[in-house]
Amino acid sequence: MQQLLITLGILLLVLGLLWPWLSQLPLGRLPGDIHIERENFSFHFPLMTGLIISVVLTLILWWLRK
């Protein structure tokens, strides 16, 4: 448990340091993301972004378990 918390802390630190560059990625604006905008209504569902993040996290966790 301690190793997991330390790893997550380091990962959060690295993500925080890389945030200026990571925020430039087109995540949330990919083809396949659903965005509906009407007069008094706006709806955004990041379908493809969620799928890509899920696949990447699955591969990372699979790799860490080996």
Rank of each mutant, 00 (worst) to 15 (best):
I53A: 15
E37G: 11
M1N: 09
W63A: 14
V14E: 03
T58P: 00
P20F: 08
P46E: 07
H35P: 00
L4R: 12
L51N: 06
G32R: 08
L12F: 13
M1W: 09
V56D: 03
N40Q: 11
R65F: 08
E37D: 10
L47E: 00
T49E: 02
G9D: 06
L47C: 04
I34N: 00
E39T: 10
L61W: 11
P46G: 04
L25D: 06
L15P: 00
N40K: 12
I10T: 08
Q3D: 05
G32Q: 06
D33I: 04
W19K: 09
Q2I: 10
L11Q: 03
L18H: 01
L27T: 03
M1D: 12
P20N: 07
W21A: 13
L57M: 10
W21K: 13
W62M: 11
L4H: 08
G9F: 12
L57R: 00
M48T: 13
L12C: 08
L61S: 14
W21C: 02
L22N: 08
S54Y: 14
L61E: 10
W62Y: 13
F45W: 15
Q2F: 07
W62C: 04
L4Q: 11
L61D: 05
P31Y: 01
I60L: 15
L27N: 00
P26N: 13
L51H: 04
I53W: 13
N40D: 12
L18E: 02
I53Q: 10
I6V: 15
V56Y: 04
L8F: 15
G9C: 09
P31F: 00
F41W: 14
L59C: 13
F43E: 01
G28H: 05
S54M: 15
R29Q: 15
Q3H: 05
S54V: 09
D33T: 03
I53K: 08
I36C: 06
S42F: 03
L47G: 00
L5M: 11
L51K: 04
L61C: 11
E37M: 06
Q3E: 07
L18Y: 02
Q24I: 07
L59V: 14
W62Q: 10
